[in-house]
Nucleic acid binder design. Structure first.
Length: 645
DNA sequence: GGGAGAGACGTTTTT
DNA sequence: CGTCTCTCCC
């Protein structure tokens, strides 16, 4: 298929696909077909014979990266299967792994698992004011990097911060690891300080989706990679919902000014949503006062009005029941379960709906985070697996040595580490020496006991390795039938099947990344339940948003924050709701008008409210009184009048 | 090094 | 309400 098939010359979509400008910026509202136009641009490049390896399509999430790849393959563009959409993060890890880069940075790009950060916190807590304080300081460190604060003129670091940073990086260097927030900044530093680096001219074409979700460091990396490249960025500041990740949506606004002679293109026709939903979205987002441009989504006549209902229930239980009944009715009427998406900002609302659907035998899938590594026992086995693959995995060793202690045995570990530092020994070999009596370090008895236990376990695992590879090791670590390890076992076996059994290192690398990756089925057969953040980038003929109450949507900002910050948080919450309602897809020709249902309730048990971090308007005999979300009011005449359920 | 009890705090989310 | 952290004490 030719890249321009079905693209009308002179339209913005055609311009996006065809512009030869060095810099192209596209501002595109929800459902306006930005991904479509981007794909056509990639198709044009490939058809013109550009090497796939010289094209870098960057997305924010893995889901989006895989999505892009899949759709390009579907277009049957020549050599498209060689083109791999990347997340900036995976690109950074791969680049930092290159030998010459490793040599230049002196840092190992081995990212810490969430659970592995605990001993790091405990080790630093001793000299830096306790675990909570350390956590704050790590956050500040990551945030300074993410926002490239150090590059700002006049940036001064306090002695305390400098102290902390020195100890933190010393820990990370010793343990040959990085915290996740360092990955992109490390690449940024490498590129910025090595203007002659091959990486800066590796690409001739860079395409960035959801640019408003990138933080300053990420945006900086794009600039540093594009010495030689035509760059096309796409995004929408009205859909910026990642401030907690230090996203820098101003970057997309300023981009035309900071990049010479850039094309400034935009897409306004909302091809996805029914007319009424577009009107509601416009009315809602107009309440954000800090918008650089008051852009308006244009409704499309052929999409039809759609069906929208707003329903208030008496209690949370009634709301959940109401949603369940609505879904059951829709399915009875012939709606495919895969066409229904339920958005709820808290597990306390989403999970009962999920359980209710399971009970009614309606196929359903929940996307609330539940990590394979949640259970402590699983973490231990995963750490064992890491040590089985590599005895010198110092992070995993540190973790198993401190496990089961409320201070992670920081005192004895400090002695061990000191010895290693002064004698340039590795922790593993040092512990072996203490164990055999060749060496004595005082106050390390428990540590060595732990070590012996772990070493024995690994020894046993090693004995299991047979002609048929390491499958028995998986069986031993993640036994069949143990519900606590069911998910990780399945992932491990899957990974094993796709890998060379003898290559432990690549097996572990693949498994680690499989754990981090949310599964995305190609064919959707079930009702999907997820948070509003997760819904970004997808659309569904029936979208239900439950729990539209004050305190949840919008979330109440902490009262002690300055007014300007509280207002910024509120505006982001409004954008989140804007993203939510614009998931609705109208396909009248297929008998799918596009259905949006917003629900809320007047009361929920106080305990539920507290557990979900909702501060109630008032309390009445153990029941929290709830108010309708202000966002419902803000949609004004564009929205239908709420009804009682 | 580790257990018991008091007190603080809590979401959403990416890699 | 439940979980986590911190302090105190053995």
């Amino acid at each position: 298929m030719a890249w321009s098939d079905g693209l009308e010359e002179g339209t913005q979509a055609y311009e996006i696909a065809s512009s030869p400008n060095q810099h192209v910026r596209v501002i595109a509202g929800p459902g306006t077909g930005k991904s479509f136009a981007m794909k056509r641009r990639v198709a044009r490049l490939l058809e013109n014979g550009i090497e796939p390896s010289a094209i870098l399509p960057v997305t924010f999430t893995r889901v989006a990266a895989e999505d892009l790849h899949r759709e390009l393959v579907c277009m049957q563009v020549p050599r498209c299967e060689e083109l791999v959409g990347k997340t900036l993060h995976s690109l950074a890890l791969r680049t930092l792994m290159r030998h010459h880069v490793l040599a230049a940075t002196g840092r190992t790009p081995r990212a810490l698992n969430n659970f592995e950060i605990k001993p790091l916190e405990a080790d630093l807590a001793v000299n830096h004011g306790g675990v909570i304080e350390v956590r704050k300081k790590i956050k500040a460190y990551e945030s300074a990097w993410a926002r490239l604060q150090r590059d700002e003129p006049g940036y001064v670091q306090s002695a305390e911060e400098a102290d902390f940073e020195r100890d933190l990086t010393a820990w990370l260097r010793f343990h040959r690891a990085m915290i996740i927030g360092e990955v992109i900044p490390q690449l940024h530093t490498y590129l910025a300080t090595n203007p002659a680096a091959q990486e800066r001219t590796e690409y001739s074409h860079i395409l960035v989706d959801e640019y408003q979700d990138l933080n300053k460091a990420e945006q900086g990396v794009i600039d540093l990679l594009s010495d030689n490249a035509e760059v096309c960025i796409v995004g929408d500041d009205d859909q910026s919902i990642y401030s907690f990740k230090h996203a820098h949506p101003e970057g997309i606004i300023d981009w035309v000014a900071t990049h010479n002679n850039a094309d400034d293109l935009s897409l306004e026709d909302c091809r996805r949503c029914p007319i009424q939903v577009v009107d509601m979205a416009n009315a809602l987002i107009a309440h954000n006062v800090n918008r650089p441009v008051n852009r308006v989504l244009a409704p499309m006549e052929q999409n039809g009005a759609g069906t929208v209902s707003i329903v208030q229930y008496h209690t949370l239980n009634a709301e959940i029941l109401g949603v369940l009944n609505t879904i059951a009715e829709l399915i009875d009427q012939g709606v495919h379960p895969g066409d229904i998406v339920i958005l709820a900002q808290r597990g306390v609302i989403g999970t009962p709906i999920y359980e209710g659907l399971v009970e009614r035998d309606i196929p359903v899938r929940s996307y609330y985070a539940q990590s394979e590594l949640d259970a402590e026992g699983t973490q231990f086995r995963f750490a064992l697996l890491k040590l089985f693959v590599n005895r010198e995995d110092r992070v995993a060793l540190r973790w198993v040595l401190g496990r089961d202690s409320n201070n992670w045995r920081t005192n004895s570990y400090r002695r061990l580490r000191q010895y290693c530092d002064t004698n340039e020994a590795t922790p593993w070999e040092t512990l072996v020496q203490i164990e055999t009596g060749d060496l004595n370090i005082p106050y390390t008895n428990t540590l060595v006991q732990r070590f012996t236990a772990v070493r024995n376990e690994i020894h046993q695992l090693e004995n299991l390795v047979a002609d048929n590879g390491i499958t028995p090791v998986i069986d031993a670590l993640f036994p069949d039938g143990d519900p606590a390890v069911r998910d990780i076992r399945a992932l491990a076996l899957e990974t094993l099947a796709a890998n060379d059994e003898d290559d432990r290192v690549s097996f572990l690398r693949e498994l680690t990344s499989a754990i981090a990756r949310p599964e995305i089925p190609t064919e959707i057969e079930e009702v999907r339940i997820m948070s509003l953040h997760k819904s970004k980038g997808l659309s569904a003929p029936v979208t239900i948003i439950a729990g539209c109450i004050e305190g949840l949507l919008p979330q109440e900002p902490k009262a002690n924050l300055p007014l300007a910050i509280r207002e910024a948080i509120l505006e982001e919450q409004r954008r989140l709701f804007y993203v939510g309602i614009t998931r609705v897809k109208a396909s009248p020709a297929e008998g799918k008008p596009g259905t949006l249902i917003l629900t809320y309730s007047q009361q929920m048990p106080l305990a539920t409210a507290m557990g979900a971090g909702i501060s109630p308007a008032s309390i009445n005999y153990g029941e929290a009184n709830l108010l309708a979300s202000r966002f419902i009011r803000e949609m004004g005449q564009a929205a239908p009048a709420p009804i009682a359920g």
